[in-house]
Design a protein around this nucleic acid. Structure first.
Lengths: 188, 188
DNA sequence: CGCGTAATTGAAAAGTATCAACACTGGTGG
DNA sequence: CCACCAGTGTTGATACTTTTCAATTACGCG
């Protein structure tokens, strides 16, 4: 599913209006740009303003596993902030992506000083945990046809937006299997 | 893997010593007891003091998907607290489990008033997100043999502690497949 | 001892990956 | 303007893996 978080996006933009725009920079990534790279140090927290990005891990088997597609308001980099570790995933722009960037230091200051912001982040991470648990549970207990149908429901014009390879990587199958499933869907 | 969080457990026990033991109750669950039930309202946050529990979701296919095994210091109920939704999983004791229970209201008060506690929970949730992402990525991109080997590395005496059915449900395979893999492991 | 639950195993069926060949597209340079 | 190329998508045949089903055994406990 393409995850979004409008509430947080609004709050961030409100903070900017209140004169914190020097702390919260707006930047742009072009198609294919990697905003965050796996196994590197992360110095900022990012919030997608608009566009679409994929969050994926590269395994030692050479396969990519797509964790999630990020849309408006989705946040990344915050987990690395709290765990003090290198990034565990790569964030790559699938379309041009406009995003806000907050330096780690400033992000941590906000967390400590702005209780509303603090609560938004708590709630955001809780939602991530819940969502991820439900998705992976569904994925492991249902067959390809169901998983694909579910993804299509939640992403309008899936095939127009996302390459087959990425869809396959998201579902944890090969492109060949994806094509077979798509074909058998039509005939039924 | 059996997840633990000693740091949080210590902090909770310190809070109790400081006279909050009426807020943080110690309770016991027997083998098979369900501490939290899926799709019910959750009124408390729980911290495992000792013992082993499984966290699982029941899917409409009738299958169980085991999210994680919880050991010392692991927390559950906090996600429901922040998202204000029914529980998305069931927590069931695999051994006798001693745990601390904090009423939702008191938990939220602590979050707002105790910045150390607040940060522990932020860090805990970030760790959960990171851990879950890494686990599911590994699981989807590796074969049964690798996944099983990885689980055995992280859980000493796996087969003695956890039933084959639970291991299979954790790995997302059938017991038949688990047995076949175990057998072929020996012969090599 | 007898009961229910868990574990084991073989055989057949179903699902998925692998491999290889070929089509389609947009961009580049001669 | 066309030939070429790289990347993406399509498809069939085959090999491999996992599930399903069913029968049997082992184990713990009243």
């Amino acid at each position: 599913m393409i995850r979004v978080n409008i509430e947080l996006l609004k709050y961030i933009e409100q903070l900017r209006v209140q004169g914190k725009s020097e702390l919260i920079r707006e930047e742009i990534a072009l198609v294919g740009d990697k905003i965050v790279k796996e196994k590197t140090k992360v110095f900022s927290v990012f919030i997608v303003k608009n566009g679409l990005a994929k969050c994926y891990l590269k395994e030692d088997t050479g396969e990519d596993f797509i964790q999630e597609f990020f849309g408006e308001g989705e946040v990344f980099g915050e987990v690395e902030c709290f765990t003090n570790r290198f990034s565990f995933c790569t964030i790559e722009a699938l379309t041009a992506v406009t995003y806000y960037r907050i330096a780690k230091r400033d992000f941590m200051k906000l967390i400590q000083s702005d209780i509303t912001f603090n609560n938004l982040i708590l709630s955001l991470m809780a939602t991530k945990i819940r969502y991820t648990a439900l998705r992976h549970s569904y994925n492991q207990t249902h067959d390809v046809e169901h998983n694909l149908a579910r993804l299509r429901e939640s992403v309008p014009d899936l095939l127009g937006k996302i390459s087959k390879k990425d869809i396959a990587n998201y579902l944890g199958i090969t492109v060949r299997s994806l094509n077979r499933t798509l074909k058998s869907e039509k005939s039924t």
